[in-house]
Design a protein around this nucleic acid. Structure first.
Lengths: 198, 198, 198, 198
DNA sequence: TGTTAATCGAGACGGTACGTCGGGTCTTCTC
DNA sequence: GAGAAGACCCGACGTACCGTCTCGATTAACA
């Protein structure tokens, strides 16, 4: 019996992983990412978290994966979904929340991840699959609920405009990621949606 | 004659800068940027260009400024403006050319510059002023020629969608920067323009 | 047993220092010092020893300390004390051995250390304490065994003449560091000793 | 006529050398040598003297030659020979003056020259011929005037002890270059001289 | 009750690149 | 010509991180 449980759970032998250590690392990574993305070195995370470098390398193959997990952890603890009424309101809220989130620490993390995905070509697919696509799918759902089913190419283009313009502001900083922006963006998406739906 | 030239030029003293050296550095930088952005170290540029590091640091304060100048130089030598007929065709061509350019070496350079602008916060304003804004103004001109004068906020948003979606594809690589994309993007912009102009 | 050993050793944490690496560095330093003192750069020692610069800087704060340790190591492995009969013969042998040693690799190292102690004022005290004084004390012992106890000032002066004239020849190279020199020097010291003892 | 005069005097053509520039360089070199020997770089001398590096390299082949000439210039302007009575007093004065001189700026220059002669093996012969030997000959003259003619080997040894012990204190700094030292040294030399003369 | 295996802090180690200093040579303009 | 200015290639500096590697000391599950 125990055997089969073990087989299922693949319970490891030696000393189990210390969850406190994991948390300390992720929190430190998230903190350092906020204090200016360029300062994020594994060395510094290890020092600040009171952890050995080996421990970090044991669990995360690269800086990118570390920040990604830190971000996902942070996001789940931070973002609380709000109950939405109509599909239109749901889409509006989603865009607003996305823009609002990127204004803060999450924005710093995303910028760091973008940089990492460019520097470490091995990380780009991971970033794309585990973060970009996930956000796109959520947004795609809200979009199609609001404007109806869309041709895949057109859906892709709308998502590119949506996330693209947000990231563009995040990276360049020439214009704010404020509510006005979110509102205007929502309107633009609606215009495009109406055109495409017809 | 000479007098006025002297007055204008305020000719510098000492040995003049060697233009061949400058060109060799910029070409090497451009080449290395193509071979994978992360490999661009000043050390490597110097070695490959047969130049001392000091010479690079004398003229470019950071990696970002170096790549930026290399890109601008490359672009002026590479991109030939095509005579356009109607404003609509001009806009179409501009978007097509922008997308096409980012598919090649220029795209590699822009990715590198984006990374650099995030890692070196001192470089971000330079990048914004000397590259991003310049491209935006050109595009804004074509846009307003085509759809008529626009409210500044709306113009900004349209430019963000345009460049944002292009950069987004450049960075994430989830969808191609092909002609189809350029066409669809142009159509979307036209839709938004029509909405805004009314 | 183990307890007391533990208490004494206060064993360090982390990966222990690799003695082979240490030896390779010191040997390389000694070799480079022989091939012409000016060529001794940390960079070159690192390259020739197949070691990273950081490893050298981890254990030796400066070129001087590195060469000093290399010399001390080399000397202990090279110099074999010879059993002496009378105090007079012991003194003779000591002077002869000192002169002979400075004729070879040890002389190159001492010259390098002298240079270093002048270029790096922080190293001078170390050099003085760990090398100069040590040699002086040995010589002082032999001297007083031979000629009897001496007034401190006079002892100092005799040692200065002794080592001074040897170093002077080592540095200037106007006259050889041969046995004749050692013999004459011994005689001169004896004359002074006789005068002072009276 | 003029031709032949030119040929004879080998009067150079273009602009004659500016003696003020030469002086400014030598003074600056002497000043920098005093402020800590290690700081003497051609670069710094040029900057401090308001002179181009090329001008320095035109007249002095190496740092050593520059400092040597600066020292000789300084010494002639500084040291005033004192009329001496007996040969014994002359020797005493000479030793006293030598020790006293090395206590100040001249000592700094000599230390710098010693370092230079070790780092730049091409400079050692120059240093030996133009400085070391010159001083030795002066001292040898005073010595032989005082104690009578000496066997060359013995003379060499006495000079080595004399200059060696002074330089040794200059370099190591374990004991002062004061009058007491000069006196004791003179006495020691007298003792040796008496022994050798017999 | 050990034995075994993995975790974890600590830190040594070979590398690559950083940005700076100085060396010695050169090229240009001015006097 | 001499001289100031300064570009240029080069070698070395001392530092920061990289990713890998030993250590000793824990901490479980297994025998």
């Amino acid at each position: 019996m125990a055997e089969s449980l073990e087989a299922l759970g693949s319970r490891p032998r030696g000393r189990p992983r210390d969850p406190q250590v994991r948390d300390r690392i992720l929190e430190t990574a998230m903190r350092l990412v906020q204090e200016g993305g360029r300062k994020l070195s594994i060395e510094k995370v290890a020092a600040d978290a009171g952890v050995s470098k080996q421990t970090i390398y044991r669990w995360w193959p690269s800086r990118g994966e570390l920040v990604l997990e830190a971000l996902l952890e942070f996001a789940t603890r931070t973002i609380v979904p709000r109950p939405d009424g109509s599909p239109e309101r749901a889409l509006t809220h989603l865009i607003e929340d996305t823009v609002a989130a990127l204004r803060g620490p999450i924005g710093d993390a995303v910028r760091s991840l973008l940089v990492e995905s460019q520097l470490d070509s091995g990380f780009l697919p991971t970033f794309r699959d585990r973060f970009v696509e996930a956000r796109r799918e959520v947004m795609a759902g809200a979009l199609e609920s609001s404007v109806g089913e869309l041709d895949p190419e057109r859906l892709t283009l709308m998502l590119d405009c949506l996330f693209g313009s947000i990231w563009y502001r995040l990276l360049v900083g020439h214009a704010p990621l404020d509510e006005r922006f979110a509102t205007d963006l929502t309107a633009a998406v609606a215009t495009l949606g109406a055109e495409y739906a017809s």
